[in-house]
């Protein structure tokens, strides 16, 4: 089984400008870029946002290779979308391959759609590349806090995320153990027809869920035994602070994005 590094995820430690920004600033600014990408239509606007994203990549000092790697999962969809636009959109004929007509309008729309997708992925993966999961969770809890008034459990969500983060490696190990135990009893996961293979998943799923629920209930008992009583009145070891850097970045990026949307 593939086992990607779960603890750190995509995070690349560093001390660049982007690393030093508060997680809240980074999350909100990447959302601002996403909103801007969906509200512009001119290629000049795309180019302006593209420059912004490239500047951010440079400021993050994350190897460009790592940023591009984030695009790998969408290569297929990117190509498919481009082809669909190129050959299916009506318009002025550009060239013909077999029975497919490529159009000038299709080429333009295909290129802008591809640019939008690439910028979308690059802008958002920069956040996860420069923020450690723990800091991200803290930032998210702080960002969601105002929504408590409408009943959104900000602290609970952050705590449940921490539990998930803590237990993913444990559960992974457990799954591995269960698979080996079933193989020792003669289970075969790699051969046979479709039905046989699908059926082979059941002896993994059942023990995995039984043990996961047992762990969850034990954890609840352990937490309550240590007087866990939710987020109210909790104090923190790591405090998040918004600084001058955050103010400059927020004002600068929002002004630039507004210009990109309004100018063209």
């Amino acid at each position: 089984m593939r086992m990607p590094s779960v603890i750190v995820g995509q995070y690349i430690p560093g001390d660049s400008l982007l690393h030093r920004l508060d997680p809240r600033t980074k999350i909100m600014l990447s959302l601002a870029i996403v909103v801007a990408l969906f509200s512009v239509h001119s290629q000049w606007s795309y180019m302006m946002i593209g420059v912004l994203v490239l500047v951010a990549v440079a400021a993050s000092r994350v190897p460009f290779k790592m940023v591009v790697r984030g695009l790998r999962p969408i290569v297929f969809i990117l190509l498919l979308t481009f082809m669909l636009h190129l050959f299916m959109d009506p318009g002025e004929e550009l060239f013909v391959v077999w029975r497919l007509r490529a159009t000038r309008e299709g080429l333009a729309l295909g290129l802008t759609t591809a640019a939008r997708l690439i910028l979308l992925i690059m802008a958002t993966s920069l956040v996860t590349l420069t923020t450690s999961p723990i800091v991200f969770t803290d930032g998210l809890e702080k960002l969601l806090n105002p929504f408590r008034v409408i009943g959104l459990p900000a602290h609970e969500l952050a705590m449940m995320m921490t539990i998930a983060l803590r237990f993913i490696p444990t559960l992974l190990e457990e799954t591995d153990k269960i698979m080996k135990a079933q193989m020792a009893r003669g289970a075969d996961f790699d051969s046979g027809g479709l039905i046989t293979r699908a059926k082979a998943m059941i002896p993994i799923l059942v023990p995995l869920f039984v043990s996961a629920f047992r762990r969850a209930d034990e954890l609840a008992v352990a937490m309550e035994a240590r007087c866990y009583r939710g987020g109210a009145g909790r104090t923190r070891m790591r405090q998040l602070r918004l600084g001058a850097l955050d103010a400059i970045a927020a004002v600068g990026v929002v002004a630039y994005l507004t210009a990109a949307v309004v100018l063209f």
């Binding site: 449940m160 539990i163 993913i168 559960l171 992974l172 629920f213």
Partner: peptide
């Protein structure tokens, strides 16, 4: 607390299941 731990761990189980891939012929 019991709901919270169950929710957190089910999120973890979903993540683990996402990696269990059975190749189809």
């Amino acid at each position: 607390t019991r709901s919270m731990t169950r929710v957190g761990i089910m999120a973890g189980v979903t993540a683990v299941l996402a990696w269990v891939a059975v190749p189809l012929p």
